[in-house]
Design a protein around this nucleic acid. Structure first.
Lengths: 115, 115
DNA sequence: CGTACCTGCTAGCTTCTTTTTGCATGTGCG
DNA sequence: CGCACATGCAAAAAGAAGCTAGCAGGTACG
């Protein structure tokens, strides 16, 4: 999903929510410079591993980063993350299009019922 | 911030957070088609006025919509909202640049003091 | 073996966001 | 005057998100 793909409403919310956070912004920034493994990245950013994992998971769920498990020279398991080269342009029109495809939370509701 | 302005980190977070919500996406979508006043828009979207006000305030705080108070023919005060024609392109590089300018939470808040 | 790395997970607390509910104010009209 | 429509705000309830602390498992090296 490298270039300007038309995002569905739910996708868009997920991506925006994933990026709407200082820590996750810094994670994306760091990974855009160089891929990194979890522990090292946590040190680099000055946050705990557990916290970073949560943020990484959220970014991965939005498709903004991907993980690749590798074995280092000395046999340690290293989980390397890298950014997905996304390009997302936000305009009122793009949002209007995406909003059409928004999923309604649950049953009990259907657009155009009562006026 | 109409066209491709370089957003500061905090601005970016604010804008992304403002858009990362189904209701607010629908609000922007509706306003991009036609400006609307609060009560009417609430009916159109099927949500309460109070709730819509909160969402509108958040969108306005992010600079995505603006309000204009007008008097209708019959003297009622109508608060019309409209979208700001923003264009925001998100890429890892843009985020990396914005992340540089992120404000740190700062444990003790002191107006006027620099760090 | 103990230490130093790497990985992952969850329980529980805190904090922020979202939503509801209720009140207060103003104008025009039958 | 009371009803219908417009505006606003704010406290409190409900829910989601953020963060810490602790546990568990793996490999390598001195």
């Amino acid at each position: 999903m490298s270039s300007a793909a038309p995002p569905t409403g739910d996708d868009l919310v997920r991506v925006l929510a994933a990026l709407a956070n200082p820590h996750r912004l810094r994670v994306v920034a760091a990974l855009s410079r160089e891929r990194a493994y979890v522990s090292g990245l946590a040190r680099q950013l000055g946050i705990s591993r557990a916290l970073l994992q949560v943020h990484l998971r959220k970014l991965a769920a939005a498709g903004l980063v991907t993980a690749r498990l590798e074995l280092s020279e000395d046999g340690k398991a290293m989980n390397y993350y890298e950014v997905e080269p996304f390009v997302l342009t936000l305009t009122p029109q793009v949002i209007a299009a995406a909003a059409e495809t928004l999923t309604v939370p649950d049953s009990a509701e259907q657009p155009g019922a009562q006026r």
